[in-house]
């Protein structure tokens, strides 16, 4: 059997909000080490990779590896009913046919039980090589979301360029052009809610990406005050948000190249 209890149920809510518009159905792969999920969007341009380590749950039991296939839109509708301080318990039988989600209020005065039918999803799992990226930008997640939103007014592609001085996001379209430059900056009073912008630069990078997908990724903004954007020329970028201190959600996006 599989059973896992997450004290901060709102993490699961935020994860579902982050992926439900990008991915329709996905397998939650459960093993004794935790839960992982890997899924491509319907056009196979981007990839989501979620990791929730077993030690981040206050109870975690997985007798044998199982894949729980779920429709993420249906799951997000159920998980939206999680109160912010609720704990969430996920349970599944050994073949993952039936999944139970239980929400408990902090004082134990309310318990709700939901069951979702598991889906048989045939998805290939891709091997993602561990890579040293040429440029790694860490910045406030809300700022990244805002930049994606603001540049979408101008065009559908953003050119992200890193240099020693900072990072620029530029877009152009029929209306004109827009460019937003961020310099490296310190965090305000080491306040985790006001992180600064930092750039680890091995080599400068300049690549084009579809704003539509980056905007989907920014639905994960409520998960964390900071986001990390890792890039190398000619390979997909990675946009990473931490999931509490138990894991991460990573979004990979292939660069756009000239026709």
């Amino acid at each position: 059997m599989f059973e896992a209890r997450l004290p901060q149920g709102d993490l699961l809510k935020k994860i579902l909000e982050a992926v439900k518009d990008l991915v329709t159905d996905a397998n939650f792969d459960c093993s004794s080490t935790g839960i992982s999920l890997q899924a491509m969007d319907s056009s196979h341009v981007s990839l989501v990779s979620l990791l929730m380590r077993a030690d981040g749950f206050d109870h975690f039991r997985c007798d044998r590896n199982i894949s729980i296939g779920l429709n993420l839109l249906a799951m997000s509708k159920v998980v939206r009913c999680v109160g912010n301080n609720d704990a969430v318990t996920m349970k599944a039988d050994d073949n993952g046919d039936l999944v139970t989600l239980m929400f408990e209020s902090q004082d134990g005065s309310k318990v709700s039980d939901w069951q979702l039918r598991g889906l048989d999803i045939d998805s290939e799992r891709l091997g993602i090589p561990s890579t040293d990226y040429s440029s790694v930008v860490t910045m406030p997640s809300a700022e990244f979301a805002r930049i994606c939103r603001d540049l979408s007014v101008i065009g559908d592609t953003v050119v992200i360029t890193t240099t020693k001085e900072g990072v620029t996001f530029a877009s152009k379209g029929e209306l004109g052009t827009g460019k937003i430059a961020l310099r490296q900056s310190a965090a305000i009073d080491d306040d985790a809610d006001s992180p600064g912008v930092s750039i680890e630069l091995q080599e400068p990078v300049s690549q084009s990406f579809a704003l539509r997908y980056l905007s989907f990724f920014t639905k994960a903004t409520p998960l964390a005050p900071t986001v990390t954007i890792s890039m190398s020329n000619g390979v997909p970028l990675v946009v990473e948000y931490p999931v509490g201190d138990m894991g991460h959600i990573r979004f990979y996006l292939a660069p756009k190249v000239e026709d």
Partner: peptide
């Protein structure tokens, strides 16, 4: 032009 993400990441 946009390459598929799978073309960058092979089978595990």
């Amino acid at each position: 032009m946009q390459r598929s993400i799978a073309s960058f990441f092979g089978a595990p």
